[in-house]
């Protein structure tokens, strides 16, 4: 394709990225560096601040149960409520990623079953990539940037909750060193979604054709946007290998939680995605 077409594709995907994803990297970095006129985020660094900040997270689906009144019981419940609200937010985010996928030219013309497969296998990878701009080495923004939760606090939760986020921090700190901006991210997300090697695809060729065009667009975009960053295109693509391992480990952890946590019930949409995934 002509470079003008590739640039138009990049612009189109950037516009739908801005339309569907409420917290951009630009905004997140402004919040994290204190360069915004908005209020600084509320910091959650221990159980007390989690309980204080709970009203800012959507925790209403799971009211405090009467029969547990000991401190340990209450803390256990606060943890569970927090992870339930993480699930609700993740389900919302899946819906946003779906709208973004539908805006990729040609996506909605693919076989509907293949669209489902691409989302099923791609969406957690996309969500992990989208978490990276919200993170730094010390913690992560949540609740649309209203809250900063520290990495140490997440590590201090009981097993297996404490194991959930640490691998994402390790990945994100390295990924952020590539310094992609929102317009680069939009193209990279589309490349991830259009992976022709997902298990069970019926018609691979049109998916690979679409991905090839987006890859050309990403390559051109990175050369133009980051002229001094050598081999950036190759480095970005290499991240896709790390992502698959992260998703496999994440799904295993969720399965483990389903078995060990009696109070744990997985959001139906997340269940659909994770069932028979890897």
């Amino acid at each position: 394709p002509e470079s003008a077409d590739l640039r138009a594709l990049a612009r189109h995907l950037y516009e739908s990225y801005l339309k569907y994803f409420p917290l951009t990297k630009a905004k997140a970095r402004a919040i994290l560096s204190g360069k915004t006129s908005d209020n600084a985020p509320f910091v959650i660094h221990d159980m007390k601040s989690l309980m204080e900040g709970e009203h800012m997270i959507n925790c209403r689906q799971m009211p405090m149960q009467e029969h547990r009144r000991s401190d340990v019981g209450i803390m256990r419940e606060v943890e569970l409520r927090f992870f339930h609200s993480c699930q609700s937010r993740s389900a919302e985010a899946v819906s946003e990623v779906t709208e973004f996928a539908k805006s990729i030219p040609g996506f909605v013309n693919l076989d509907l079953n293949d669209q489902v497969t691409l989302l099923k296998y791609g969406v957690i990878e996309v969500l992990i990539i989208m978490m990276a701009p919200l993170m730094n080495k010390d913690g992560t923004l949540i609740s649309y940037g209203q809250i900063f939760m520290t990495r140490e606090f997440l590590k201090s939760l009981r097993k297996p909750f404490c194991e959930m986020m640490e691998p994402k921090f390790e990945f994100s700190v390295k990924f952020n060193m590539l310094e992609l901006d929102d317009s680069d991210m939009a193209l990279f997300l589309a490349v991830i979604i259009l992976s022709g090697d997902r298990p069970g695809l019926l018609n691979v060729k049109p998916i690979e054709d679409l991905q090839e065009t987006v890859l050309h667009s990403l390559e051109l975009q990175l050369k133009t946007n980051h002229p001094d960053s050598l081999q950036l295109f190759a480095k970005v693509l290499q991240k896709m290998t790390d992502l698959r391992q992260l998703v496999t480990d994440h799904v295993q952890l969720i399965q483990l939680m389903k078995e060990t946590e009696l109070d744990w019930c997985l959001h139906p949409l997340l269940q659909e995605i994770m069932r028979d995934l890897y």
Binding site: Y20, S88, E92, S95, K102, L112, V116, E272
Partner: peptide, 20 residues
């Protein structure tokens, strides 16, 4: 199709993200 009915619904919904 039954196994992924919410994903199907999200994909076939023509407006903005659906309320989950």
């Amino acid at each position: 199709k039954e196994k992924h009915k919410i994903l199907h619904r999200l994909l076939q919904n023509s407006s903005s993200p659906v309320d989950l």
